[in-house]
């Protein structure tokens, strides 16, 4: 399983994105945002049909986090999303205007005390499938990446 990284580095926006779009932090737009990000990845065959639930789940986690936790649901604040696809990997970048978070705020699922918390499982779930999950600028931006089927 990949490990989550939280860096202070600048956000590595892709040089040649197939999508680079900003959206108001409105949860009613969530599905539209997810579909817009997923469409070029699926159209390129960069995620198999069997893996579609994982892609949608990961996108749901980061879009909800950016809109509701990062931007606190303020519709005047935008989230920026970008998608890049190359021969070996697809990459999604999502950034918000929040204050970020620290690694210590992420519950450890191995800790019995955190097992019955009602939140804090999103990162663990995403790490199960993604090859890379890296947060930048204190957690206000996240990069998700996974090798394409057959790529190494």
């Amino acid at each position: 399983m990949a490990a989550v990284r939280i860096l202070d580095d600048p956000v590595p926006w892709p040089a040649e994105p197939v999508l680079d779009q900003s959206w108001p932090s409105r949860v009613d737009l969530k599905q539209q945002v997810i579909d817009a990000i997923a469409a070029p990845i699926l159209a390129a065959g960069a995620v198999t049909e069997n893996e579609r639930p994982w892609l949608l789940l990961c996108l749901d986690e980061v879009i909800v986090n950016a809109m509701l936790h990062g931007n606190e649901g303020d519709p005047t604040l935008l989230i920026r999303t970008a998608v890049a696809i190359d021969a070996g990997t697809w990459t999604v970048v999502v950034a918000d205007h929040g204050e970020g978070f620290s690694a210590s705020a992420v519950p450890d699922p191995e800790d019995p005390d955190s097992l019955l918390l009602e939140h804090g499982r999103g990162i663990r779930i995403m790490l199960q499938w993604l090859d890379q999950l890296t947060y930048y600028q204190r957690g206000t931006a996240v990069v998700l990446a996974r090798h394409r089927p057959g790529a190494t």
Binding site: P53, L57, D60, E61, V64, L116, E118, H119, R121
Partner: peptide
């Protein structure tokens, strides 16, 4: 066929 971690939270609360 699809669920988010928020659903897991609801199930934990129910449990």
């Amino acid at each position: 066929g699809y669920l988010s971690s928020a659903v897991l939270g609801k199930l934990v609360a129910l449990h």
